[in-house]
Design a protein around this nucleic acid. Structure first.
Lengths: 243, 243
DNA sequence: TTTCGGTAGATTGTTGAACAATTTGGCAAC
DNA sequence: GTTGCCAAATTGTTCAACAATCTACCGAAA
């Protein structure tokens, strides 16, 4: 999907902006659009076009860009512009290095007082699989892993995990995802939750480590496969904005 | 130390700014000054005064503020201004919740290929203690713990830890630190490194968990003690900028 | 005296225009 | 097919202005 196609949409959303927080608002709008895949990885975010469409000044838009860049959602190349981050293989490995620390550690040392969100996520994932809804399956899976990190009860780790998952969505958007990709992991998640609640934390953590290693491998493989065939398409898409 | 006192200093530093990156540069200058304690927690960062002194426009300065706010170094209150973050007890607890995940996990699952930085930090800490240099002791201790997280080999976790340690410096700047505060931890660090290199990772991680629990308790106690006696002084200091 | 509004001044939030610096792409010359 | 240079487009940054909001001050009422 190109920038031009969602311009009307964005224009509609740019009706009510109040004093004090326009920059935050603009960042939220862009974050949301990127997360939904409407602004694809590699796309250039033109200052002039976006500021016009969002109805904010270039200065305010730049404040939003600074926020998104800090979240790695967007990449700034000096004097060239701002682009939706296009995940690389190294980027994927970096993501999983972080996840292999955060998630097992949360299982080992986190609080076991409230696992409601985890149960809910497992439930949603199962329902999504039954309904054959791939997007809902992916979303529920992300919720589960965010919930695991939430066991650590640290706002900044939750935020970090949110950023990591946002970048994972970019990874998925930058390649074709096999419809059966997420399905096998649903049972693994359920099993992890079971172990965790039974007090078998070390086992749960070990399962998480295995899960993440396996997932990383699959993602890297899929990404490698996608890279070749979509390189030309991506060039075209980016070309739209550079022109 | 008040803003007025370091204005000349900043003005000197604001000589060479180039195209493309002024905002980043301004953020770096402020980050450095805050880290060094020259801009104390609670101090208001006036847009007009700072932009004038740094020789950047208010717009560019605001871009820097957005970056620092994302790092929690600075707190933005809408329509009131930007302040150097004044750590609260809850803030301290939040920091230690994150550290109790990151640091033990890095010891458990991190790479053991390069412990050079850790040995160096332990060495520096010992030398600093021998020399009675409290600041160097604190700095070396921070280097050690940053080095532990670095074992995870994740750029974003390293960055997260850097932010956490920056906020810890704010905590120390917001209270009087007992000269003997850091000394006992030097041996604990050395012992942790010893265990880690002997392959006793679980033991090293357990020691880390204890260390962090103990440190959190001490910091909270010291903070509580400092809060009452310095409340008036802080009010005065902040008052300088509100005038 | 204390409290309650209300107003004036100061500061932040945001915009739009302007110019400087850099990149890009085309075009000529070799 | 390179190489070098120029023109157009885009980003980087500043400046001045105005809107919105907060703070502090001050007089009126209790």
């Amino acid at each position: 999907m190109t920038l031009d196609e969602i311009l009307p949409d964005l224009r509609r959303q740019a009706a009510d902006v109040r004093h004090a927080e326009t920059g935050v608002w603009a960042a939220a709008v862009l974050r949301e659009r990127i997360s939904a895949g409407q602004l694809a990885p590699g796309a250039k975010l033109s200052e002039e076009a976006l500021s016009e469409v969002l109805g904010v000044s270039r200065n305010t838009l730049r404040e939003a860009f600074a926020t998104l860049a800090a979240e790695h959602i967007v990449t700034r190349i000096p004097n060239r512009g701002v682009f939706v981050t296009l995940p690389t293989a190294d980027g994927v490995r970096e993501i999983y290095r972080a996840r292999r620390i955060l998630e097992p550690a949360a299982l080992l040392w986190g609080s076991d007082l409230d696992t409601g969100d985890l149960h809910a996520a497992v439930g949603r994932a199962g329902a999504a699989r039954a309904a054959g809804d791939v997007a809902a399956m992916a979303s529920a899976n992300q919720d589960f892993h965010a919930g695991v990190v939430a066991l650590a009860q640290s706002a900044r780790l939750n935020q970090q995990m949110a950023h990591v998952l946002a970048e994972m969505r970019l990874v998925f958007h930058s390649m074709a995802v096999d419809p059966g990709f997420h399905a096998p992991y649903i049972d693994v998640n359920a099993r992890m939750l079971e172990l965790f609640e039974a007090g078998e934390r070390a086992e749960a953590a070990a399962l998480m480590v295995n899960y993440l290693a396996e997932a990383e491998h699959q993602v890297l493989t899929a990404q490698r496969a996608a890279r070749g065939e979509s390189a030309q398409a991506r060039r075209n898409r980016v070309g739209d904005y550079l022109k």
